[in-house]
Amino acid sequence: MTETGVLLQQVVNGLSLGAMYALLAIGFTLVYGILELINFAHFNVFMVASFIGMWALQLLGISGQSRVLTGLALAGSLGFAFVVTMAAAGVIGVVIERVSLRPLRGVGGTAGMITTIGVSYILFNVILLTVGAGSENYPNPLPVHRWQLGQVVVELKEVLIWAVSLILMAGLHIFVSRTRLGKAMRATAQDAEAARMMGVDVDRVVVTAFFLGSALAGAAALIFGLYYNYTSFIIGYTAGLRALTAAVLGGIGSIPGAMVGGLLIGLIETLGGQLIAVRWTDVIIFSILVLVLVFVPAGLFGRAAPTKS
């Protein structure tokens, strides 16, 4: 492989990684846009969802690397797994909101954020104490296909990630821009008080944001499991932190910002690892984040200046 070939291959790697971060980052951004709350529970909603996706596939008799499906059987079982995982993750998100965050609505400061840290700890330990700390051999019904495009190898799995991410993001875009509820969400994100006065049911909007964000985290979790054939109780932290960084980099509260931020973080991670060293990945990511925030305090796509006003 030539130097350019390697870099292109790292770009392919980065785009796959970035697509997952983007899906996860949207969850942070949706909730932040409406409640101005950084939802640390999202880290481990993602983790729990990866297990739910695994159990859904196992329910269909697909476990480990043993069964490879094609055609309709593949589409059907993946469809089932996506629906179950996204719905379950969405419900978990809604339950978290109802039980631990709604009573805190209107309480200023850091109370909400600290609560979500607590919820995150609870989810983490529930999985640790029930499932255990081992690594899971994630079901993999996908056939292996590779395409050699010049010096770059693209795998079927990667194409699947991009396709699913694009479909979900397009769906979200249509939902937010076309539907009544989606418009209400945007209005609430702009100005919650005005939206409330105009008759927007803010509670419903908040629940929707949590459901959608968590469902997208569910999709990201299933993609994650299928791509790496792996899950474990620890996956929430690093993935969540990267996605949160992506959301902030893009301008937290902005949906396009989360998408672009996710892809950027994915690319920074792979290209940084290639050109510098993997051991410095986090240092590179956070240095870039600080630099961006110093010069563009609202993030790349942020709306408001991030100083209190």
Binding site: V6, Q9, Q10, N13, S16, L17, F224, Y228, Y230, I234, I235, Y237, T238, A239, E269, T270, G273, Q274, A277, V278, R279, T281, D282
Partner: peptide, 16 residues
């Protein structure tokens, strides 16, 4: 090079 045990993605290292 070093792998971060909490990270899931080692494709960068693999490509390298």
């Amino acid at each position: 090079d070093q792998l971060n045990p909490k990270e899931a993605d080692y494709t960068t290292t693999r490509t390298k």
